[in-house]
Amino acid sequence: MKLQYIKYLLLLFHLMWVQCQNNVFAQESNPDSLILRLKQKLELIKDYKADIEIHLDVDFIKMPDKNAKMFFKQPDKIRFISDEFIMLPKRGIGISIRKILKDDYLAVYSGLEIINDKQYTVIKIIPEGSKSDIVLSTLWVDAEKALINKVENTTRNNGSYLINLKYSDPELELPTEIKISFRVVNLKIPLKFIGKNSTVDKDELKVKGAKEGTVSIKLSYFDINKGIDDSFFEEGNNPDE
């Protein structure tokens, strides 16, 4: 009698586990609920101000690490203020995933991927309509926390770029480090203009067609959702437009 009871109990556990697995798969294979959670999370951040540290790594540009202030307001307003000269790649700075998710899109579940011993749900987003420069956006999402870990955007004319996001502050659901890998195509600099013996290899640039680089931005937020007036961004950059 006791053995029979244990058998039923084991069968019950097995059925529960199978059901649980089915639920998880159903949830993961349908990206809509996860994207809805993502959107809700992104919507929570109306605006922020942050001190940023920029580290640019491109072999034909040598620049020391720079400090600036970054201002952001939904959906895609960005402005940088710095006493120093700063240089940032145009592609990727706008974290334009907010913009993509705001318009019509088609989301496709692309499986699970393990990065650094952590499992991420991969979702491909295809924006509908011809307005957006981005034709395909692949998101690596931490489904448990509904946080985007990696984004790969493929643009209509300018190749693709990769954005890696790190969240080191557990109380903050905003990235504390953004690393953007980008490509610069057909760069031409008037070499003879400054510097008599300037020796940037133009042929090399032409042969390879593109130069790859990365920019790492470390963010320390000091004001979140405190409100920033729209007029503040009028003189600023809106890089992803």
């Binding site: 700063i86 240089m87 790649p89 700075i93 400054i194």
Partner: peptide
């Protein structure tokens, strides 16, 4: 003139 090509790919401020 010097930076026209760079400004296509980069935001330059300062």
């Amino acid at each position: 003139f010097i930076t026209q090509n760079l400004s296509d790919a980069f935001i330059m401020q300062g």
